[in-house]
Design a binder for these strands. Structure first.
Lengths: 227, 227
DNA sequence: GTCTATAATCGGATAGAC
DNA sequence: GTCTATCCGATTATAGAC
């Protein structure tokens, strides 16, 4: 959600989950002891990175929370960088897949506004209740080494392209200049990702936040409140 | 911009700059060698924290960038925690003071929408072009030790109260429920603070971003574009 | 006020036993 | 696969010279 590089904009739902290399935790490989440990390490790392930040979490912290010793992590990963890269990648893959799936479920004739509201809800669900991976990504992305950030940009751009499409469908023909839409996209993603800084389960439901945020984005705070 | 604690809401511009303890860099104390060094250390720390994050910046990094040795910092500050606490405090004080000053300059009869647009511009200017302190605050707040965060909440709440007031003036009488306004405030501050993740000088001016963001917040992305 | 020197701890990473 | 043991550099912080 940071890059300003423009990328080819695929139509929504035309692309497969992309990459998903050999290490994709989400894919259903045959369960082995090694893959179990690998997944446990990544789950734990995502949870700790989300809570504490990137630099504040040591490999000793991760391994201890897994019931392992620090040296054992190196059987599964070559470095801390490799662990955090995987966590970041999976974080985007998941919110990406869920937003696209939620849109696809609406069918091809869904109204642009309905598509928008559905995507906002899916993004916020992934961020606030489903996935430590996605929330860890948003929270630590700006704090990992620049080299790791750079490697993640293509995947982020792919995900942002989905939002560019959703927004482009929504906005009337007039003023479709691409830098117009860029501002809208940054505005919306900034507001949504900012929920991580204040949302705590119990005060309001994720779906309520999603409804309010979608309405605010569509109509503004002076606009007619339709819900 | 994180707390959910409600605080007394002062009318805009009725309160002095609050606190501004003995160590306020912004206040004009007689310039001594010690206060010069103190200020240099804080300026440098703010710049590095903004760029690299909290945990990634060591006291050696700060002192080296000041042309000093690490041990010398301890003449001016008791710990890294004390340095970062000062940076965070000054960051809020400054954006606070500038937003309030920009509103005060409009006079008491300014239209709510004009007040809003002016405040958005002042906040974004402090964040994106004026102050490493303010941008450092936004970037690292969620990554400093919990104890430090907690100590900063009252000041943050004071600043958020200004926004609560600006927004309350703007919204029609209907539906002024406070949790309504809370969502609007979080939505807006999230979008504005998110600019840190993508804005780079040169592509667009801060004032252009401010205009677009204010319009989007007021009218939404379906609304009439009035600029 | 700033320096040097150092204490005490913790960090990522590696080698080899089991 | 996981553990133990260890290397080695970096970190915060302190003590005392100048």
């Amino acid at each position: 959600m940071t890059s300003m590089v423009s990328t080819p904009v695929p139509a929504i739902s035309t692309r497969a989950a992309a990459s998903a290399g050999s290490g994709d935790v989400a894919s259903a490989s045959p369960t082995t002891a090694a893959s179990d440990s690998r997944r446990t390490i990544l789950d734990t790392a995502a949870r700790l990175f989300r809570k504490e930040g990137y630099a504040a979490v040591s490999l000793r912290d991760i391994s201890a929370a897994c019931g392992m010793k620090a040296g054992s992590l190196y059987y599964h990963f070559a470095s801390k960088d490799e662990i955090v890269s995987e966590v970041l990648r999976i974080g985007v893959e998941r919110v990406f897949a869920e937003v696209r799936a939620s849109i696809d479920a609406l069918g091809k004739d869904a109204a642009p506004e309905q598509v928008f509201r559905t995507a906002v809800r899916a993004h916020l669900r992934a961020l606030l209740e489903s996935h430590d991976y996605t929330s860890a990504n948003i929270r630590i992305f700006g704090h990992v080494p620049a080299q790791i950030r750079a490697a993640q940009l293509p995947l982020r751009d792919e995900y942002e392209a989905v939002w560019a499409d959703i927004i482009a469908r929504l906005v009337p023909r007039r003023k479709k200049r691409s830098d117009e839409l860029r501002f809208v996209r940054f505005f919306l993603l900034g507001a949504m990702n900012g929920t991580l800084d204040w949302f705590h389960a119990g005060h309001a439901s994720v779906d309520e936040v999603a409804q309010r945020y979608a309405s605010l984005a569509l109509s503004g705070l002076l606009g007619a409140s339709r819900d």
